[in-house]
């Protein structure tokens, strides 16, 4: 029983950490690069221009 679950975990859930990191990473980039809230936009303004994001 235990062995079976371990196998399922290795095969089926092995990609979960990678998916989690990709979602987290894209979330961070969306926040710093795209969200138009005024405070975020002003703080990230120079970075958005320098990094090639559409800014305003």
């Amino acid at each position: 029983m235990t062995t079976k679950t371990l196998n399922a975990s290795a095969a089926g859930l092995g990609f979960l950490p990678a998916v989690f990191a990709i979602v987290l990473g894209l979330g961070v980039v969306t926040l710093t690069g795209h969200v138009q809230a005024a405070a975020l936009h002003d703080a990230a303004h120079d970075v958005r221009h320098a990094t090639g994001f559409p800014c305003h």
């Binding site: 990609f15 950490p17 990678a18 998916v19 989690f20 990191a21 990709i22 987290l24 990473g25 894209l26 979330g27 961070v28 980039v29 926040l31 710093t32 690069g33 703080a43 990230a44 120079d46 970075v47 320098a50 990094t51």
Partner: peptide, 27 residues
């Protein structure tokens, strides 16, 4: 103030990029 915020946000942005890249590297 302005340039410190830029440094923080650049580090955040590039950490976002490395999270995606390292995940793909693991795959």
């Amino acid at each position: 103030m302005r340039d410190s915020l830029s440094i923080v946000f650049t580090m955040l942005t590039y950490t976002g990029y490395t999270l995606v890249m390292v995940a793909l590297m693991s795959m």
